[in-house]
Amino acid sequence: MPNNIEQKIRDEARRLLTEKVVDVVVGYEEGTLPLLAAPCFITAPEEVDRLIFDASCKQNLAGYVHALIIEHRKSQARVKPEDKTEKTVAVIARGCTSRSIVIHLQERQYERENVVIIGVPCQGYIDKNKLSDKASGKEILAGKLDGDQVVIETAAGESRFPLEEVLAGSCLTCAWPNPVISDFMAGEEVAPRTTEDEFALVERFAAQDENQRWAYFEAEMNKCMRCYACRNVCPSCYCPTCFADQSQPEWVGAGINPSDNQVFQIMRMFHMAGRCVDCGSCVEVCAEGVDLRTFLKKLDYDDLKLYDHRAGVDLEKPSPLASFREDDPEEFILEP
């Protein structure tokens, strides 16, 4: 039985496809593993019933929107100007997804007309690591959502716990669970989380001494196998050639070397300054469980504290590295 939101998503998707308003609807469908939805691409009205939306839907889908539109443009490179077509993509967007789209629009990646935003109010998604802890490391054989509860089955039997306990860190402090821009809303808006402790993580981390902080950073980066899933899933990482893939100059060594791992992550994260919407997708896709959020959140923190900016929240407000003020803080400057 589709839930309320799903029904609305499907109806809207059907309409958009039938009326040929869009070429494709990017959404989530049921996956092959328990409590893990898969991204899907619907192009025919009769397939819209595949679409689902619940806490098993994880990644930010904005990256796909970008890829579809840009790939289409590339494929049109040799088409005569008068014959060129545009691709229009509809996307199921929760708060973070919509913020990533705002970033794309601000960075002039595509036009507002290229994307139809089917907004969904979001209660958060399940963090795979927290879920696995609930199963005490045993394989989860089946799982389902039951209102605000999660029910899982392992070899040890069935267990039930509140969804809240397994929500991703990003979701637990999410101040924008509803899309910041949308063309259609598939449900009543939900209340944002209180933002008071949004940065508690950063403050706690910063309160440790330098060597403790470094030890943690070093240990986390040592886990990385350099698969680049974090970068590839990130909607803000859309560069045609990432620095990590460049060979002239070779910005960062390709091997698993502690220093290269660190430098890769420092620079990728630095590229997220003012551009990370804290969707948590990079954390969720990482097979090695690297804690990226503790570090990314710092950039978010400085974005707010130094430049009173939040990534992708306001189309009209330029991102911090695309703007400046004469009186920007400069306490860090020696003998200013």
Binding site: V202, F205, A206, E210, N211, Q212, R213, W214, A215, Y216, F217, E218, I266, M269, F270, A273, F295, K298, L299, D302, L306, Y307, P320, L321, F324, R325, E326, D328, P329, E330, F332, I333, L334, E335, P336
Partner: peptide, 29 residues
């Protein structure tokens, strides 16, 4: 330099946050 100042502020704060000593990177005019 005004654009640069923002980049440097982010970077300096970030490097220090992850545990690089503050005085390893020094910025001035």
């Amino acid at each position: 330099n005004l654009s640069a100042r923002r980049k440097f502020a982010f970077l300096e704060n970030f490097l220090n946050y992850i545990g690089i000593e503050k005085d390893r990177t020094i910025f001035t005019w």
